[in-house]
Design a protein around this nucleic acid. Structure first.
Lengths: 152, 152
DNA sequence: CTCCAAAATGTATATTTATACATATTATAC
DNA sequence: GTATAATATGTATAAATATACATTTTGGAG
């Protein structure tokens, strides 16, 4: 449920100017997601959304596009800073990153999990991992996600 | 005074992880800017700063980088001009484009169909889309083809 | 299925942020 | 210079957001 809700939230904020978490809560409710402001606040944190200045004076929620890169570049660090989302289909794991960072993430993952990964390809902002089975793919997603959130 | 303060605020948030406006107020005070939280709140709005998720679970203020501009008709246009062919295999959709245009097409498709697409990777003249199922892949091909022909 | 642990969520509330209103400061015209 | 308008700021507080704690739900392991 959380997963679907997160996706729906992204959709909502891309379609409308949402000023408050209360408003977002109501919209979610209207679409059948029974949540409270507290949960929305947590979701916003997890999705990395931000309250930003809107066109005409007010505020609205939006995705925070690009974090500044700082600190030293250890593997996990690169990973947690560059990754936007992680998903799988069949035996493929797809990792979306901020623009230009896919290469770095792929290299990092190659080093970290070379045994699970059959192969990897990186474009500009997407990494594709080929693993052996559908199960491995799902497992990999959940492992990567844990890693990802632990680091935030 | 305001101008200088704004500059100093930018400097502060780039150097430190500032969690609250109260904290920023104190830092400004320590550097000789006599302000209150109210003013800081207004400054933040004017500077377009956002409270975003930090590395280790907390929040911090940061600059909100430019949001991408979405123009669906423009997207369609890029698409129809660049694409050469569309085909699928299993859960993968392969789109061939004229040389050097794959990146633009991929970006365009990402925005247009983010729900269907698990991930996309673009080389120079080929885009690979990963979707969830074989059915989705075929459906996507037919939708893209329709779109493609409508525009020519 | 039962038990346990982890994750998710709600409730109530503390914390944080935005703003209405009053006052002060700065700029502009004369 | 003075008068007037525009801008900036503080104070007090309303509004919005984050979170401690309690409860529910979910996901294995046996």
């Amino acid at each position: 449920m959380k997963r679907t809700r997160h996706q729906h939230m992204m959709k909502l904020i891309s379609e409308k100017d949402i000023k408050t978490q209360e408003q977002l809560t109501e919209l979610l409710r209207a679409d059948g997601f029974a949540v409270t402001q507290a949960t929305v606040s947590r979701d916003i944190k997890e999705l990395g959304l931000v309250k930003t200045t809107a066109q005409f004076g007010g505020y609205k929620y939006a995705v925070q596009s690009m974090p500044e890169i700082e600190d030293t570049s250890e593997q996990l660090n690169i990973f947690s800073k560059a990754v936007v989302s992680i998903d799988s289909a069949l035996n493929q794991v797809v990792i979306k990153t901020y623009a230009g960072m896919a290469q770095a993430v792929a290299a990092s993952l190659d080093r970290m999990m070379s045994n699970e990964i059959v192969g990897s390809i990186a474009g500009d902002d997407t990494v594709l991992l080929i693993v052996r089975t559908e199960e491995t793919a799902m497992l990999t997603v959940s492992r990567l996600k844990k890693m990802f959130y632990k680091r935030r």
